[in-house]
């Protein structure tokens, strides 16, 4: 119990649902941009989970974690979008199935 009526399990349920939706987005969408957004969605689902647990235990460490997750997300978006722009400039595409450089 979170102490004010809404059980913790419900927050976890919402977090799980959002995470799964994000996962589907990453796995099935072609657009690299949307895949990035889906990743943000997954990160936010985890953030929700962190904050809920933080409230449950009455400790702020969970919120601090959210803070760090946001910093990492910002860094990731900056670099990821830069890569995306670079790829698009050279190949005129933003679809992940048009690019297969990630192999030895």
């Amino acid at each position: 119990m979170t102490g004010h009526g809404v059980p913790l399990e419900l927050y976890q349920l919402v977090a799980a649902l959002l995470f799964t939706i994000g996962l589907v987005g990453v796995l099935v969408r072609r657009s690299a941009l949307v895949i990035f957004m889906s990743i943000e969605l997954m990160l936010n689902a985890v953030n929700l989970s962190f904050v809920a647990f933080s409230r449950l235990h009455g400790q702020m460490d969970g919120q601090i974690f959210v803070f760090f997750v946001m910093s990492v997300a910002a860094a990731e978006v900056a670099v990821g979008l830069a890569i995306l722009v670079a790829i698009f400039r050279n190949r005129e595409t933003a679809s992940v199935d048009d690019v297969h450089l990630l192999k030895g």
Binding site: A75, A78, V79, A82, V85, A86, I87
Partner: peptide
């Protein structure tokens, strides 16, 4: 964050891929 900033700048300036 600093590394990310530098990375983004480098990626945006040079020609890769």
């Amino acid at each position: 964050l600093l590394v990310a900033v530098i990375g983004a700048v480098v990626l945006a300036k040079r020609k890769f891929f």
